[in-house]
Computed example of a mutant assay.
Amino acid sequence: MATLATNWRKSSRSNPNDNCVEVGSLGGSAAVRDTKDREGAANPTQWSTFLNAVKSDRFTN
């Protein structure tokens, strides 16, 4: 799936040298990938873990 998406981008708040997630345009949807594995795609377990972390404010400064 990662190769089908276009316009990959990551948060402007990301450190350029750190690993993070990127989001890309995929028609009417969005694709997500890990910068450590740009040819891969987030599996359902990874995506669920990430969403739960966001929802619980684990990334808040």
Rank of each mutant, 00 (worst) to 15 (best):
T35Q: 12
F50R: 02
P16A: 09
S25W: 03
R13I: 03
D37K: 15
K10E: 05
C20I: 03
L51E: 01
E39L: 10
N15V: 05
A2T: 15
M1I: 13
G27D: 07
K36F: 03
D57S: 05
S48F: 04
D57K: 10
A41D: 11
R33Y: 12
S12A: 11
Q46F: 05
P16F: 01
S29A: 15
M1Q: 14
G27N: 11
S11Q: 11
S25N: 12
R9Y: 03
N19H: 13
W47C: 00
G27T: 06
N19S: 09
V21W: 02
R38P: 11
A2H: 04
W47Q: 04
T60M: 02
M1L: 12
A42Y: 15
G28C: 06
L51V: 10
T3V: 13
K10H: 13
A41V: 13
D57V: 00
R13H: 12
F59E: 05
A31I: 09
A41Y: 10
M1S: 14
T45A: 03
A5L: 04
P44E: 09
T45Q: 10
G28R: 15
R33K: 12
A53T: 00
V23G: 00
C20A: 03
F50K: 02
S14W: 04
S29F: 14
E22Y: 01
P16K: 14
A2E: 12
D34K: 10
R58G: 00
E22S: 08
K36A: 12
A2G: 15
S25Y: 07
L4I: 07
Q46M: 08
K10C: 07
A31V: 11
E39Q: 14
D37G: 02
N52K: 09
C20Y: 06
S56N: 07
G40W: 13
F59K: 07
L26Q: 04
T45F: 03
S11V: 12
C20V: 02
D18H: 12
R33S: 03
T6S: 07
A53M: 03
G24R: 07
S56W: 02
K10D: 02
N52I: 01
G40L: 13
A53R: 08
N7Y: 04
E39C: 04
T49L: 02
N17F: 05
F50V: 00
R33H: 09
A53N: 05
V54S: 00
A41S: 15
E39S: 13
N52M: 00
F50S: 00
L26I: 06
C20Q: 06
W47K: 07
L51P: 01
S48A: 12
L26K: 06
W8D: 01
Q46L: 06
D57H: 07
F50Q: 02
G27H: 11
